[in-house]
Computed example of a mutant assay.
Amino acid sequence: MTVDTHPMNTREDIKLSNAQIAWRAAQDIFDGAYVNLGIGFPEMVARYQPEGRSAIFHTENGILDFGEAPPEGAEDWDLINAGKKAVTLKPGSAFFHHADSFAMVRGGHLDVAILGAYQVAENGDLANWRVGSKGVPAVGGAMDLVHGARQVVVITEHVTRNGEPKLVERCTFPLTGVGCITRVYTSHAVVDVSGGRFVLREKLAAMTIEELQAMTGAKLHVDGDVADLVVPQL
């Protein structure tokens, strides 16, 4: 089934917080997975590993198996992630040159990369580094991550601050990678990218599929049951 777009106000009155989006994404990381978390919002995923599971986190600047952020005032600024935030070390953590770190990425040794996004297209294209004149100076290591990790997923708000959709037919911002995204966790839904289509898997129970479609810049396809998107209060 395909749900057609039609004009409707966005449902920003009901949505998940960033912490809840990160929690939902963390539930799908399998035990022992090697995971790279993008700078900023995706770093929150590390806080919400399910009980009994432990991911091994990788950072491009050369640490494998780092831990939580230290308490304020206890930072060791020689121990930072790629976003220049202080981290702690787990037993068995490893340090290496950033060239070796990117060899791990390019060699296909990461199971999952979790990134933020400005736009995701229905064919899996990702734009997450520049909006017009705004953004970081260059695409950087993200272009390696999106084609080196075995699975690349996005966590993001469903729409921009101006109410523009982030899930679109085609990206209009400079691309980070082509056909690389397989799943998107948003403030309103969980959407798979499959066969050049957005396939709706979960949505907030308080909104209809039609309301969600009105917030989405490409057609949402329904293949089987759509589950309720259920997360704890965080």
Rank of each mutant, 00 (worst) to 15 (best):
Ser194Tyr: 00
Ile63Cys: 01
Gly148Asn: 07
His6Pro: 01
Lys166Asn: 10
Leu229Arg: 05
Pro50Tyr: 06
Gly124Met: 07
Pro91Lys: 09
Ala113Gly: 04
Gly179Asp: 13
His6Cys: 12
Gly38Met: 08
Lys90Ala: 07
Ala205Asn: 07
Tyr48Thr: 00
Pro70Gln: 09
Gly179Met: 10
Ala117Ser: 12
Val230Gly: 07
Val159His: 02
Phe57Cys: 06
Glu51Asn: 09
Ser17Cys: 10
Gln27Ser: 14
Ala99Glu: 06
Lys90Arg: 14
Asn162Lys: 11
Phe57Gln: 02
Glu60Arg: 03
Ala74Leu: 02
Thr156Asp: 12
Leu89Ile: 06
Gly108Trp: 09
Tyr118Ser: 06
Leu167His: 09
Val105Glu: 08
Ile21Asn: 07
Leu212His: 05
Pro232Thr: 11
Arg170Glu: 15
Gln119Arg: 09
Leu212Ile: 06
Gly108Glu: 13
Arg106Met: 07
Glu75Asn: 04
His6Trp: 12
Arg24Phe: 15
Asn81Glu: 03
Ala218Phe: 06
Pro42Thr: 07
Gly148Pro: 01
Ile114Ala: 10
Thr172Asn: 14
Trp23Asp: 12
Glu157Phe: 11
Met104His: 06
Ile63Ser: 02
Val190Ser: 09
Arg47His: 14
Val159Met: 04
Val153Gly: 05
Ala46Ile: 08
Thr160Pro: 02
Leu220Gly: 10
Gly124Glu: 08
Trp129His: 12
